[in-house]
């Protein structure tokens, strides 16, 4: 990690802390009930939501790094993953946390298929085609899900639903801790796969220089397929965890995917660490915004920060110089 990255991360954290406070002091007086316990709760819940964003953003980031494609339909894969886990846990009776792995495999295969059938055909034709293709996939997946499983919100029943753990003043659901644990585990596995294995090295090579990787004998098209599958599998994990924490509907995926893309723009396109830190910081920002400004601003704050950053730096916080 070089110095620019460290400075960038500090800037991100500063934004995280400052933005809700500044915005809050402008728009509305902070609610009087904020005590230390409440503050800790906000931070805890922010980190948990941040975990979902970390998984989502990392998958999106991987796909972007290797294929240079922005998959706007990433959120739909996430929701699909949630539904797969839901049905596996209901029909087979598998523990929801174990059904994550089933869901990862299934959605990974769906992702591989999508890459092979759709994205490969338009890869390199024009950026706009790729964006519009993923837009079409949003509509296809959303409505296919809504037709199959109706619009009714579903939530995965966790076996630890009513178990709480208390740390001094703070009481947390056991599920919250497990969600954090699962995220850490999955991300660690992902990190090892990318940094320590042969496939990971080939993927990194493809993302750095496609033609040079091809010359070194790497099958870049297979890498595309693999990275897309891995990215969507991470999204499936995010979807399952989200469905455990809160109810999901077929339409719930579009906005989180856009926010995840905002996160990787801020954290640096293609930077693995940036996606993790960005995701956590964004979870905190969003959650404190909800408390300080009200739920209306929940979606808007991400884009407000994004627009501010892009006005100052058109290539993103850590983007390359060339535009």
């Amino acid at each position: 990690m070089n110095r620019v990255n460290i400075v960038g991360i500090i800037v991100l954290i500063a934004i995280a802390i400052a933005s809700p406070i500044i915005a809050g002091s402008f728009f509305a007086p902070p609610p009087a009930f904020i005590g230390p316990e409440f503050l800790v709760q906000i931070v805890a819940w922010g980190l948990i939501i941040g975990c979902i964003y970390v998984l989502l953003a990392s998958g999106l980031n991987l796909i972007f790094g290797v294929m240079k494609v922005v998959n706007f339909s990433h959120g739909e894969f996430m929701i699909l993953g949630g539904y797969v886990s839901y049905w596996v846990s209901i029909l087979v009776g598998l523990d929801p946390y174990l059904s994550i792995f089933v869901s990862m495999v299934v959605i990974g295969l769906v992702g591989v298929l999508t890459e092979r059938v759709c994205f490969r055909r338009v890869l390199g034709t024009s950026k706009l085609n790729e964006i519009i293709l993923s837009l079409g996939l949003i509509y296809v997946l959303q409505n296919a899900m809504a037709i199959s499983w109706t619009d009714k919100p579903i939530q995965i029943r966790s076996p630890f639903e009513f178990v709480t753990v208390s740390f001094g003043v703070v009481r947390m659901g056991l599920d919250w801790l497990i969600v954090i644990g699962v995220t850490v585990l999955i991300m660690a596995g992902f990190y090892i796969l990318i940094k320590r294995t042969e496939v990971g090295r080939a993927m990194r090579a493809t993302s750095q220089n496609r033609s040079a990787a091809m010359l070194m004998g790497i099958n870049v098209e297979r890498m595309d397929m693999f990275s897309f599958g891995l990215g969507t599998a991470l999204a499936a994990t995010a979807g399952t965890l989200l469905a455990i924490l809160a109810p999901i509907t077929p339409q719930a995926g579009a906005i989180p995917a856009l926010k995840a893309f905002t996160i990787i723009v801020l954290g640096g396109l293609g930077s693995t660490i940036g996606a993790v830190v960005g995701g956590l910081v964004y979870g905190l920002v969003e959650n404190s915004t909800i408390v300080l400004l009200g739920a209306t601003w929940k979606d808007a704050i991400a884009f407000a920060i994004l627009i501010l950053v892009l006005i100052i730096r058109p290539t993103g916080l850590f983007g390359e110089k060339e535009a």
């Binding site: 964006i131 209306t296 979606d299 808007a300 058109p314 993103g316």
Partner: peptide, 23 residues
């Protein structure tokens, strides 16, 4: 804001603007 941006950023900023308008 948008004239200097690349395709993805432009898509995201314009989309974000419409979401900010909702709020």
């Amino acid at each position: 804001t948008c004239v200097r941006l690349r395709e993805w950023f432009l898509a995201l900023v314009t989309l974000g603007f419409s979401i900010i308008m909702v709020a």
